[in-house]
Nucleic acid binder design. Structure first.
Length: 210
DNA sequence: AACTCGGGGCA
DNA sequence: TGCCCAGAGTT
């Protein structure tokens, strides 16, 4: 690890601490799974608004499996792509019950075989529920790993593997969450708050507006 | 690689 | 009112 990388990681720790942060509200694994499915192309803040009521109305996995699709579509409407998501959530709930004894699987290929669960969603589940070292590559991570020069590629898989090389393995998930926090709060896609950024002197972004 | 699947927030 | 934001699946 280069001295610069070490400095970046130290500052992330200083700024955000070593407490694990999950931005999606949930009480258990299946709730997190549904919350992450809803979070596709949608902000975590909005997902939390929707799931607050959703998990009261549908308080068991079975209720999602038995849900009326038109009604569920309305319940999750504001998260966008609601027809796909409602169908996927119902299919997911049924498969969890029928094939996984009502549990959320930990295996990556099992997870990505579920409707509406892609690589990002699967890695969120693995990191949050099973503490499996895997890098969540969402658009925050893609953007920041590029701005920090951890990857020059726009390919998400490339970003994931580049970050895996850069970040210490025993802190993958923690640094991953810290980077996502930086992306949400400071290093935003548009109009990043470079004046407030504790990494601005180490930033390699061509589009930075410091 | 390119397309489709919607809605919320903001200027 | 038009632009930007946020993943998964299919062809």
């Amino acid at each position: 690890m280069t001295k610069r990388t070490k400095e970046i990681l130290n500052r992330l720790d200083t700024a955000y601490g070593t407490d694990f942060i999950c931005y999606l509200n949930h009480d258990n694994a299946w709730q997190l799974l549904i919350a992450v499915i809803l979070s596709a192309q949608c902000t975590d803040a909005r997902v939390n608004i929707v799931t607050k009521d959703l998990f009261v109305k549908y308080d068991t996995l079975q209720k999602f499996a038995d849900a009326d699709i038109a009604e569920l579509e309305q319940d999750i409407h504001s998260t966008g792509f609601y027809r796909n998501k409602a169908r996927n959530i119902i299919l997911c709930a049924r498969r969890l019950i029928e094939e996984f004894q009502g549990e959320v699987p930990s295996d990556l290929s099992d997870l990505t075989s579920l409707a509406g669960v892609g690589r990002k969603t699967a890695n969120v589940i693995r990191g949050n529920i099973y503490n499996d070292p895997s890098i969540v590559v969402d658009t925050h991570v893609k953007r920041i790993s590029k701005r920090l020069g951890f990857t020059k590629e726009s390919d998400p898989e490339k970003a994931e593997y580049d970050l895996m090389k850069v970040l210490p393995k025993d802190h993958w998930i923690l640094y991953n969450m810290q980077i996502i926090t930086l992306g949400r709060e400071i290093c935003t896609a548009r109009n990043p708050k470079c004046g407030e950024c504790f990494l601005s002197d180490l930033c390699q972004a061509e589009d930075k507006k410091c």
